[in-house]
Amino acid sequence: MKTKQTIAVIGATGNMGSAISRALSNANYRLLLFAKDQAKLQTLVEEIRKSNVVADIESVDCSVNASWEADIILLAVPYQAEKEIAEKIREVANQKVVVSISNPLNTSFNGMVTEPDTSAAEELQKQLPHSKVVKAFNTTFAADFSTPVIDGKQVDSFIAGNHEEALQTASELVVAAGFYPILAGDLSVSRTLENMALLLIQETIKSNYDWLAGWKVLHH
């Protein structure tokens, strides 16, 4: 596709937000970055522009405006903030693809704050009934974006969602970021994906992987 799609990255100055923005700035997208700290955001935008002069990237000082202008909205914020932002952008996110990357972990990293019969992505879909919510990037660490191939193997990135178009869109984002996309199933599969992230975090802490770790399905 020649026509550029516009992605709003909400929470762009965070670990994930900045890693995703850097990665996608090299692909055929227009990026609108939003974060609360405008000074920090400006620094990030300039840094990305410096490393990639043709990057189509801009900072926006309002999450609603960024989402209004976007075709795809990526929420790179903690689970609680995700709920807060969803309320604000509900109207401008109508019928748009909204990417949920959050892992609703409790503070001791030993469980979820969500009930077992739901997930962050499903809760977001309830809040945004007319948007196309898709789970993606939650099983990859921020550090993986600069090294999507670890130990000679391309890290898998799992995607779950109910809308064909949203799955397709998310899959293109995953490929553009350098990962291997795996369409894992409908949005309820997010429960598994969010728990996979929990397990990977626990293993990473236990074995000291330095946050450079990922899931790979081996097969013949």
Partner: peptide, 21 residues
């Protein structure tokens, strides 16, 4: 009807569609 509509802003000189797509 509203539940099906997509609100979208676009800036001057930006493409909504390029030929071939």
């Amino acid at each position: 009807i509203k539940s099906y509509l997509i609100p979208k802003k676009i800036r001057r000189r930006q493409y909504l569609l390029q030929e071939g797509d």
